[in-house]
Every structure is written in C-alpha cells, then in structure tokens.
C-alpha cells in the first residue's frame, strides 16, 4: 500500500472512532476533519494547526454548531440530562458527507500519484453546505482562506 492509502485508512479509522464517540450512526465529513487534525506530520495537519484548529478546537466548534442548529428550532441540548450511553461496539457506516469529501479530495489532485493529505483536507473544506462549513463559520474561521493555505502547501510539494 502507498503512503496515501495508509493515510486514507488512518483517517477513516480515526474518523469512525470519533463518530462512535459522539454517538453518530455514520462517519461524516466532520469526523474526517477531526482525524486530520489529530494526525501529525502532514500539511493538512499544519494548515489546521496554524489556524488554531487542533482536534479539541474542532470538537468545540462542532458542539457549538450542534447547539446552534438545535436552537434554531427551539431545542436546548442542555435540557436533556440523560447519562452518556455506552458506545456501539460495531463500526459506524461510512456516511454520505464523508464519501463526498473523499471524492472531492481525489478530484482536487491530478491523479492518484499526486494525491496527498492536503488534497483530502480540500475535499472536506470544499463545500458551502453542511456541518463543516457551518462549524467553521461559527468559530469565525475563513474556510476559503484555509483552502488557499492548503493549496499553497500543495504547490510547495509538501506531504
């Protein structure tokens, strides 16, 4: 397996663990973003870290997006005080948004040989719709600027 295959496997596995941790039935694009932020030694990680987006910062931004979206229909997550359920033992499904993110990542590269982690970060960021752009906007982060930084890193040939 090539290095990029190992990387893709790693973020899919890590993303699945994130999904299970937050009680999601499927691994979604934002779980892949959490995985990318946790996996050091890549340009994707450096771009996120430079913007202050460590794993915990992204988790906090996602929690805020969750609360914000619920509040739009008058639901307060604070009013539910049930204990945290035990996590599911089997891995979650691979969700539609994660699939789209991976496809967009491939599309951002000129062929599989060129494909690197920052392309996959572009794949997660390259949408105005859904949880990731909403969470970034609520955190006051410029998604388009993050994409520009990922492209710069790719132009510099970094892994």
């Amino acid at each position: 397996m090539s290095a990029i295959d190992h990387y893709i496997n790693a973020i899919m596995e890590w993303g699945a663990a994130e999904a299970r941790e937050d009680g999601s039935a499927a691994t979604e694009a934002h779980h892949l973003l959490l995985a990318m932020a946790a996996d050091e030694g890549t340009a994707a990680h450096r771009v996120l870290a430079a913007a202050g987006l460590g794993r915990q910062a992204i988790r906090d931004a996602l929690d805020r997006e969750f609360e914000h979206s619920l509040s739009a229909v008058g639901v307060s997550v604070a009013s539910f005080d049930l204990p945290k359920p035990a996590p599911a033992p089997e891995p979650p499904k691979f969700g539609a948004s994660a699939r789209l993110a991976i496809e967009r990542g491939y599309a951002a590269a000129t062929g599989k040989k060129d494909l690197r982690p920052a392309h996959l970060l572009l794949g997660v960021l390259d949408t105005e719709i859904g949880t990731v752009p909403r969470a970034l906007a609520l955190a006051g982060l410029d998604r388009v600027d993050l994409m520009a930084r990922a492209r710069e890193a790719l132009a510099g040939n970094s892994w």
Binding site: G23, S69, A72
Partner: peptide
C-alpha cells in the same frame, strides 16, 4: 441543519 442535529440528538437520546 436543524433536521441533522435533531436526528443526532434523537439517536443519542434513544441510546
């Protein structure tokens, strides 16, 4: 987005 968040909340509540 509220639909997505409510589904996740309902899943968590059910568990």
């Amino acid at each position: 987005a509220a639909v997505v968040a409510l589904r996740l909340l309902a899943d968590r509540l059910e568990d």
